[in-house]
Design a binder for these strands. Structure first.
Lengths: 340, 340
DNA sequence: CTGAAAGCGCTAACAT
DNA sequence: ATGTTAGCGCTTTCAG
């Protein structure tokens, strides 16, 4: 292992001087600095982050909370995987390393916060916490800067898609295409995750504004985000209202399951029932008919979250939250009834 | 910050004694140990990994090399995302934390190996390196234990799907269904990644064994793994051989693009041309027709890799490589010509 | 501009 | 069974 003492020996300077040169601090003659840096390069010196961390109390480590308890898709989750991707790039560019935080370090008796202390992380990004998230409030109360990209945790700034706006636009699109009977297939909601409800509220808001009937019987809530749940939900909904023509789903998988149900009982999509989904998963452009949906701007969400975390790491104040619009992706799952 | 000295003060024991108790080392009376652990628990002591790492030279950190330079799908990659998922679970259960390795730490002048040294990682998993992987040989030559789940790097044990076997089975399946004219749409190959070629070799091997004609003109190589590449490749292949009825593709996206091409020129799938893909992406069960394909056993690959790394961390010897069979997923993209 | 001394939190080696 | 001493690699403080 090559240490600053090796450089000290080679150059004749003392360890603190080497340290100053390496870290670009002041109080050094340019010639000295250059000589030291040259020797460091020459003998292949690499700092020991653990030692540096011990004295400075900074680790240049960002903890990632990533569990995907909801969709069980792991890193392949259509939203979270993409956010993590960009977030990683952003923070590595700022000189930080990313480390996964878990609740099971040290024989399972640690909390997320414990894990932060153990590793002395400088900051935390909460991409997707495990279902039991109450302990996140401990994180929020700590002085470790954090940011969330999915859950709304009191005391932690978040960056989330403009779900209300998207729901509103979905309704507008159906109305514009002459639809008059609407339904919503909701996803599950948790203490800190209200995405499905926000989408519903936007959807309903637009419908009521245009004086359409949309009471609770037109919403069916899925216990999870999978295709099967969409199938079951559509079945129940159809038993109550077989006259709906416009179905908005909380995500693409639910929409796919619902379309499957319709086709399984001989109801044509989109001729008899139209669909709009959410997420723009890869399969959504392959299914039949290709699904009209919303794409969340993962890169932009990650960039905004990275920016917030960077500011907090620098001790600057930040907004309580940022909302990012989703992009509407029009395909062929919505029939224009005005033309028929 | 709570340290062992706080426990020492509270209990009256010295720091090394506290350390022994905390780490379960011998030479302590059970009573002493219990008292120390109780106090530690009571005052909420958490070890400082950086300090521990400084003295022990162990960091309990595993470096992850994950770039996805090939498919640009990031964590949503159909194979790598899944492997990372399970690998993470496995190693966290063994008391390790996962940290991403990059080549750009410290203003971009570090290599993967440099990054390992900086963070003093105990081991490395190479899930998917960046295109320029030559520096991995430096890692292989170092004494840091590593394992690879996609690339074959001299000196590093790997766990990879039985690609040859799968290719062989694909050919068998076509033959069993009465096909006589075959083609292969290859993916790109790099210095260390021969998956596409291995699949081809298995495919060809079976065809030749059954005395079918299969010269190089029946293979078209895509420059990348995307749908568009499959479309273009099928177009070129079709210009040479419009009589093939059985097309095996190096991955599902290429297969999807190729099916698109056929349908775009009015060739029916699977009635006139049949397809087998690779990966079993989510869209593969949604596309039209649903695609017959192979699913790589991501969990099993990750478990085997974790086992190899654990053994190497413990100083035990391991096999040079492990090959894991892929599962054949039969859907409706292969027509049985014997029945027609 | 440079160096000496001290210490971050922990553990290894040895002494008692 | 427990304590003493020393040191991991680095940076901070302060003296020169």
């Amino acid at each position: 292992m090559i240490t600053i003492y090796d450089i000290a020996e080679k150059t004749g300077y003392s360890a603190p001087t080497i340290s100053k040169a390496l870290n670009g601090r002041g109080g050094l003659s340019p010639a000295t600095r250059k000589k030291i840096l040259d020797v460091a390069e020459e003998i292949g010196y690499k700092p020991n982050m653990a030692a540096r961390s011990l004295t400075t109390k900074k680790s240049f480590l960002i903890g990632i909370i990533y569990e995907d308890a909801y969709m069980k898709a792991g890193f392949e989750h259509p939203l979270f995987g993409g956010i993590l991707n960009t977030f990683r790039t952003e923070l590595e560019a700022s000189g930080y390393d990313l480390i996964f935080l878990s609740k099971s370090f040290c024989s399972g008796k640690t909390s997320y916060l414990d894990h932060c202390v153990l590793r002395n992380v400088d900051g935390v990004v909460i991409i997707n916490p495990a279902e039991t998230v109450s302990e996140l409030s401990a994180l929020a109360d700590s002085d470790i800067p954090s940011v969330s990209t999915n859950d709304i945790i009191p005391g932690i700034p978040y960056v989330i898609t403009e779900n209300f706006e998207a729901g509103y636009k979905a309704a507008e699109h159906f109305i514009k295409n002459g639809h008059k009977k609407f339904a919503y297939l909701a996803g599950p909601t948790t203490e800190y995750t209200r995405a499905s409800i926000e989408r519903l509220e936007g959807f309903r808001s637009c419908l009521l504004k245009h004086n359409f009937n949309f009471d609770d019987s037109f919403t069916e809530t899925c216990p999870a985000w999978f295709k099967e749940n969409g199938f079951d939900a559509m079945k129940k909904l159809w038993a109550r209202h077989s006259d709906v023509t416009a179905v908005f789903s909380a995500n693409d998988r639910i929409a796919a399951g619902a379309m499957d149900y319709c086709q399984s009982i001989g109801v044509r999509v989109p001729d008899e029932v139209s669909f709009i989904g959410f997420d723009d998963e890869l399969f959504s452009s392959y299914c039949n008919p290709p699904l009209t949906t919303f794409k969340q701007r993962r890169e932009q969400i990650a960039e905004a979250a990275a920016e917030i975390l960077r500011k907090r790491l620098a001790g600057q104040s930040v907004a309580d939250f940022v909302r990012i619009s989703a992009d509407f992706i029009e395909r062929n799952s919505v029939k224009n009834l005005s033309n028929s």
